[in-house]
Design a binder for these strands. Structure first.
Lengths: 227, 227
DNA sequence: ATATATTTAAAACATACGTTTGACTTGTTG
DNA sequence: CAACAAGTCAAACGTATGTTTTAAATATAT
């Protein structure tokens, strides 16, 4: 029995990286083992040798992707006593930021693809990435709006997430409608600011959109409830 | 030259219907011409005979789908003089309704799939289905909030659409997270009501979520701006 | 009624895919 | 050195797919 040397480890890792890119760009069916192996500089047989088959390679690629993209439960945890409004603001900022300019675009792309129609690797993404974020948001909202029913709490969370996901899930379509240039001008900061204000206003913690003086209205609400 | 008789029309139409279902369920690559032909009760050669190939069949299926799903620019046009708030309310209701319980589920599914990663039939869907709706919404919002910049106008529209699309685009994932039962209880009416109130509150035309008396707050805003 | 065009049917074709095979190289161990 | 396992490689295998071909059946028009 030999301990795999650096070269073989590198081969396996190159395979995973190439797979991540190809699966992200073309999906499970669209990607071919031949292309992945060529991009990785590994022989065709390498996939079956190291992973046992295309499907196992895919699952491993998704696992690595979700690890690389950063886990949702590692959101910057606010210091104790942070007002819930600030927690919500931080959550939205982080969410929009990760959607807009992820550290590993291919990894994020692959994860989103797996979310779009969940396959055999979905539960991994959900368990370690999505669910913690969803529950964290729900707790923030519960703290913010204690009187809200569970159903409304759920839908309110969906309203927040829906806004954040929209720009990533529908970017190609929005570019087709309004032109690539118009969409490109919407940087992560602007989007985050907008979603924060839109959401806080909807919940009564900031001036309504179109009132007040934009960002100033967010930071110093005059009619918004205090927390 | 002969006019196609009813049987041949039926064969072509059966092919289109079967294609719509298969493409919707399995995507372009996942669907096979053999399965489509079998479901349509037509010989394998029929696809190439009637449409010239799988791809042309797909495009035709998408065209028929967008026609069946109802064109977005045929949204119930409000009577002249309708307050913009009412227009927005009607828009959201129609949008959520069509997303939640479409008249032709397969058709809607196929359209959403084509939107998710736009292919050769995307421009058809965009030109005749999506763009009119997007522009209509923008005009409603412009009328509602004349002072808003173009950029904010765009993002506000995205906030509305993002909420409406979320439930359809992410239903499988939400079911994985919160359980199928919890999601199933969110009927179209509840969702529409919530999105309407959330949005109107964000724009300053209704009570914030969690304040007031739910629907009553929507219909009789006390602090909301008058229109 | 005959000729022509249209439609249906079965089989074959060419290609691309995931996988497997078997030989060859390399590195470690007794 | 010999033996053995791990890694690498090119070639082949079996299968599924979209398409084409060829021929028969059916309908339409003159």
């Amino acid at each position: 029995m030999t301990i795999p040397d650096t070269d073989s480890l590198a081969a396996k890792q190159r395979l995973l990286d190439a797979a991540q890119g190809e699966f992200a760009d073309r999906g499970f069916d669209g990607a071919t083992v031949r292309t992945i192996c060529r991009k990785a500089g590994v022989n065709i047989a390498g996939i079956n040798y190291y992973f046992g088959g295309k499907e196992d390679l895919y699952i491993e690629a998704v696992k690595q992707a979700h690890a690389c993209a950063g886990r949702m439960d590692t959101f910057p945890v606010p210091v104790a006593g942070t007002p819930p409004v600030e927690k919500l603001r931080a959550f939205i900022r982080e969410m929009v930021s990760r959607m807009h300019t992820p550290a590993r675009p291919a990894a994020m792309k692959l994860m989103m693809r797996e979310m779009a129609d969940p396959g055999k690797a979905a539960h991994v993404v959900v368990d370690e990435f999505i669910r913690p974020a969803a529950f964290a948001l729900r707790e923030i909202l519960r703290e913010l709006l204690p009187k809200l029913s569970e159903e409304r709490l759920l839908m309110t969370g969906f309203s927040v997430i829906g806004q954040c996901l929209f720009y990533r899930q529908n970017r190609p379509i929005t570019e087709l409608i309004f032109g690539k240039e118009a969409i490109d001008t919407l940087d992560a900061e602007s989007v985050a600011e907008h979603v924060v204000q839109f959401t806080l206003a909807a919940l009564g913690f900031a001036e309504p959109v179109g009132k007040g003086r934009d960002k100033a209205a967010i930071r110093h609400p005059k009619r918004g409830r205090r927390v």
